[in-house]
Design a protein around this nucleic acid. Structure first.
Lengths: 144, 144
DNA sequence: ATAATCCCTATTGACTTGATAGAGATTTAG
DNA sequence: CTAAATCTCTATCAAGTCAATAGGGATTAT
């Protein structure tokens, strides 16, 4: 299961993508529109900023905007920031590989083989879905 | 990421599958062979038993055995017991559906569409991998 | 009977999650 | 230049989950 933080992050980013504006949007506006606890959202956007998914402007007319085109921000990008690796085991993570603590012989591990296949399948989907395609779906369903 | 519990469960079950025996195997034997804390393994096997994945015999020559043929125990079956639903969100879980707490309109949710596709991909893999195929892989690699 | 086994409940410490508080740093408008 | 509005940062909190342990109780083969 994804965390509440991931949900909030995706909703906030989708809000920015759907708005499609160039001028920065304030935290309060996002928080109210998407019903996200304001202070929690601050922390989330800060993290997203560190990885370049959003950028910010400080001061009077400040706020947040997407850090790159919506089509270049995948669901996988976001989930990796909020929830860590997509993989079901460190030993099959591509972005954050680590040997399992008590692994005997990785190349032979039958559990690993299954988890690796699962990771590839998940990553394939989550990397192909991005904020642009998602926003487009919303428009088509008449939700915007 | 899967839990340590899931790892232990898979290892223990794979041990039973590889042994392929009809007579029950004792907890201590599994725990020692697979280096799993004995008491923790007890709790895990008990849970697996409740869902029929293993069956047990009590008393003097007691122990555990697979509850059905190894080819009918998938990785998905096991992970659902130890770690809950495979889905990344309750609203896309097939075995344990639940509406998201703050969901506005499920049919329109763009996040849901992506998570649903991810669930299907993961489930497809994890339901097709079972203890028999895994044990066979071990034999082929000469690990048995 | 007895010894070996599974069965059950409770407890623990470490860590994570979701959320909140309060002050600091920066920028724009007037 | 000053004030107000914003983002930035650190600290804290309660509740929950995870991994592991402990100590018996129930059952059964011999």
């Amino acid at each position: 299961m994804i965390s509440q933080k991931a949900r909030y992050a995706l909703r906030a980013l989708l809000y920015l993508a759907a708005r499609g504006d160039v001028t920065p949007v304030q935290i309060s506006e996002i928080a109210e529109s998407e019903k996200i606890p304001r202070k929690f959202l601050e922390a989330i956007l800060l993290e997203l900023k560190k990885t370049g998914i959003v950028r910010s402007h400080r001061g009077r007319a400040g706020g947040y905007a997407l850090g790159r085109p919506a089509k270049d921000i995948s669901f996988a990008d976001v989930l990796r920031v909020t929830d860590g690796p997509l993989a079901l085991s460190p030993c099959v993570s591509v972005m954050a590989y680590r040997k399992c603590d008590d692994c005997f012989e990785e190349t032979v591990c039958a559990i690993r083989k299954a988890l690796l296949a699962a990771r590839d399948a998940t990553a394939q989907i989550l990397e192909s879905r991005n904020l642009a395609t998602a926003a487009q779906q919303l428009r088509r369903s008449g939700a915007l």
